[in-house]
Design a protein around this nucleic acid. Structure first.
Lengths: 188, 188
DNA sequence: GCCTTAATGCAAATTATTTGCGTTAAGATT
DNA sequence: AATCTTAACGCAAATAATTTGCATTAAGGC
């Protein structure tokens, strides 16, 4: 069952959606994932279980829905004055959010859904931020970086190592990846 | 519940494990993931559901266990005579396996597990193959590539785009990634 | 060949999920 | 503003999945 894109935004439906989301977030912080149940979440949100089953289908779809919302940025990346430092600040924050226990859990929730609707949405969050930084640089008169290049050679390695856990992802590692980007001034 | 590392390898226990794995693979090919149930798999494998619950805990743990087994390589990467072509052949095969519908499903099963035990194992499969190719090159007298570099700048982007689905991953794209690797002869 | 014990099968008990139907409230129509 | 239409909800019964206690089987040690 596909997650409904919250038709009828203002009113009971939206109230329930947010109550359920909050219940998932709150309970999820206190309980390991595989011990959360639909009836438990429903009780915490003050709705009947059947409402959750009908709207989201199952737990994993609900988790994925919540995860995408929580990964959705609430503001544009910070303007630090120059493209290089904008990008570095964004990458540092991105890495720290994604490599945290919560971040890793949210990614798992997103990836565990069939199809790539959810993950594509999260990918866009990153791409959009990078485009914003690049566009801002262009407006300043700086030569912007290639967004695809940053995705491929900075974002992708970071995500890869967070997912596979084979290497500790540190700030130094991120800086080294950034230094490797073509069309970006080496050693800012 | 953690998946037991098949203690008592030869006998009933192993027979059941393989029967269940086969049932998952067979039913999984014919049925969408979210319609598979433990009782159904148990029936197909000729065991009682409680056996599956006790050994694997739940469906997602069972799927992850099966996925790791199916992603485990059965042989070393092919020896094509030179490092550059060995690496290219491996990357091409890796990409095609991982980007196929089955490959994507297996990755989802692996990533949806808490902790990174399963994903780390799969990461090792790739790293080990690359090390094998590099070692073989060294034995030939060639200057080997840096395995970490290939992981970061060839494997990671491929996996990233498969997961997020934002860009079609083609052979040409893989070749472009390979060409970008330092310490590798450009244009073989 | 016997002994110990982990793993399984079975069935009962519990819990989760689905479903039918009456009710509520959002948004449209007049 | 009152009414209409219908998607979404709550409730409860029906179904299905999961857990658990106990008896049984067979693997590996002696």
């Amino acid at each position: 069952m596909a997650v409904k894109e919250r038709i009828r935004v203002g009113g009971r439906s939206a109230r329930i959606q947010s109550a359920v989301h909050e219940a998932v977030t709150r309970l999820g912080a206190a309980t390991p994932r595989d011990e959360l149940t639909v009836p438990q979440i429903a009780a915490a949100a003050g709705v009947t279980p059947s409402t959750i089953y009908r709207r989201w289908g199952d737990l994993s779809a609900l988790f994925a829905d919540v995860a995408v919302q929580r990964l959705r940025p609430i503001s544009d990346p910070e303007d630090t004055g120059s493209m290089t430092s904008d990008l570095r600040a964004f990458i540092e924050q991105f890495m720290e959010e994604m490599s945290s226990p919560v971040g890793r859990e949210l990614m798992r929730d997103v990836f565990s859904q069939p199809g790539d609707a959810h993950s594509a949405q999260c990918g866009c969050f990153t791409t959009d931020h990078l485009k914003t930084i690049a566009e801002r640089a262009r407006a300043r008169g700086e030569t912007p970086f290639d967004v695809d290049e940053v995705i491929d050679h900075v974002i992708a390695p970071i995500i890869y190592h967070i997912l596979y856990g084979g290497r500790k992802v540190t700030l130094d590692y991120c800086h080294a990846l950034l230094d490797r980007i073509r069309s970006l001034p080496q050693k800012n």
